[in-house]
Nucleic acid binder design. Sequence first.
DNA 1: GATCACTCATACCGCCAGGGTACCAATGCC
DNA 2: GGCATTGGTACCCTGGCGGTATGAGTGATC
Lengths: 311, 311
Amino acid sequence: MSDLEVRQLRYFVAVAEELHFGRAAARLDMAQPPLSRAIRALERQLDTALFERTTRQVALTPAGEVLLRDARTALEAVTAAAHRAHQAGRTEPRLRIALKADLDGGLLPRILDAYATDPAALPPELVLGGYGEQPRALRDGRADVALLQLPCDDRGLDSEPLLTEPTLVALAATDPLAARSALHPDDLAGRELPDGAPADGLRPARPGGPRPTAARRASNLSEILSLVETGSIVFFAPASLARRHPRPGIAYRPVRGLPDSTLAVAWPQDARSPAVAAFVRAACTTATSTSTATSTAAVPAHRGGDRTGPH
Amino acid sequence: MSDLEVRQLRYFVAVAEELHFGRAAARLDMAQPPLSRAIRALERQLDTALFERTTRQVALTPAGEVLLRDARTALEAVTAAAHRAHQAGRTEPRLRIALKADLDGGLLPRILDAYATDPAALPPELVLGGYGEQPRALRDGRADVALLQLPCDDRGLDSEPLLTEPTLVALAATDPLAARSALHPDDLAGRELPDGAPADGLRPARPGGPRPTAARRASNLSEILSLVETGSIVFFAPASLARRHPRPGIAYRPVRGLPDSTLAVAWPQDARSPAVAAFVRAACTTATSTSTATSTAAVPAHRGGDRTGPH
DNA sequence: GATCACTCATACCGCCAGGGTACCAATGCC
DNA sequence: GGCATTGGTACCCTGGCGGTATGAGTGATC
């Protein structure tokens, strides 16, 4: 069983995600027959069936499920090696900070100020990304450190919580529910959410199958808030965001029973850069010394809590 | 910057480890010129110098150091994908347990007994390996779970300590030091250790440069103990091993100031198999319910301590 | 300081891995 | 039962990659 090649993993992941050789081939920008051959060769090489296929249906075998998971992480590791090496070769090194715009709890400026005073600090560079992209950015080497919401897929990451605050829901001020002072998740059943993917398990089940409302496509916060204002969608947001983006047409209401939203600083477990350590220190001290940090101490460290930071 | 290929990473790691294109090529079983070309192409692709080379000297650049580390983990991730998929495709699945023979603290039989009673248990299969090979076996998918000594390179792993006991040194009974009831690490300065690599930072400095004594090659415990008996080497071992392998010609003595030896059960952070969880449970309950577990409670959990086991 | 040994780089060649095209076969739908 | 869909097979051909031969720079030796 000789070594796998990245190409084989990419091919496999494409087919496993599409469950359709033709579409996967299109996505890979190649013809279907060589893709089929490559997958067959992979199966022979691993001595394992990865797909159950008829001419009408493609499905993953259990071994295929395992490989899909591991292939994804392996591909992330490979691209991480490339990104980090490329980054390390730059003439003026930077600290790349991944975050989702407007979800930094308003802490970022103060964190950056504190960070800048550290002798180990490198000039910061922001890497903006959508919902849940921050962990991936850390894993595949596009970023060195991140501000993100817990919980998240933290395989390979260490994190330190900074700030816990209640989760509010943003409603149109005209919404009947806005008259109430607090809501229950069930009240929101069937409402549309922004397209990004706040796909927390908590998302109210959408009744009657997928019913995609038009024009949910909203990439940035002001677009989302505009859609909220019109009543097209509702939107879950931590309290700090509500505080920083008040709008007359929007009512923010607490939702009883929804878990609090926790902002954390996260970094690759094997990070060694002193700049990352400096940023983590700055983030932690900023968070604890800030008056808005209402209940940080109550939150248990989310792995890596027994460490002081990256080495 | 298109995707890297596994072949490129293997080539790079070989050169980075050998720091010599000719030897690296030999190790890769190929000629030197294509290797040089491949490295140059890699540097162009990453737009980064990876080596400083003259015709007489090859050295890693800082970017090269970064890539070496990340390339190793990426290669481990790729082979892990292959191993785990292959394993998942076997007709009779197994739980592969990595350990170093004789370093299980005598717990293994009882752990296996407890494990066997779990409904989620799969038939166990032992994966024996040398010093420090267990973490790698977990990372590259050769094993599902391991018994190993802490601390170790635990990137990507979770672990739970089982048993902490003092570290003893094994001496020839005729050794002058054997007359003393306790030793200090400095007393052992200059002594040879078994070849494997108990390369803890604690290793007494070998004075006067490398002075390899003949016949230190010893792969298993009885060979090592024989060498100890003759006075050729000394050997650090946890107390349980001493208890289980008494020999007239060997004296075990405590070493003041040497950190205790901790046995732990470890598993890949992203392990999901219920069999792994069952084994971890079995190991933990066996360790705490055992009379030889003198001071387990005193040891803080070594990451993952805030979890009950793999998902 | 000229020679030599060593080692990395360049030039050129040849093979085959892997992708493309054409076609076949099986399956489900009308 | 024909047709559309989709995966598999056969065959060709290109380009990436490895091999051999050779060049060029550098440090050591006498």
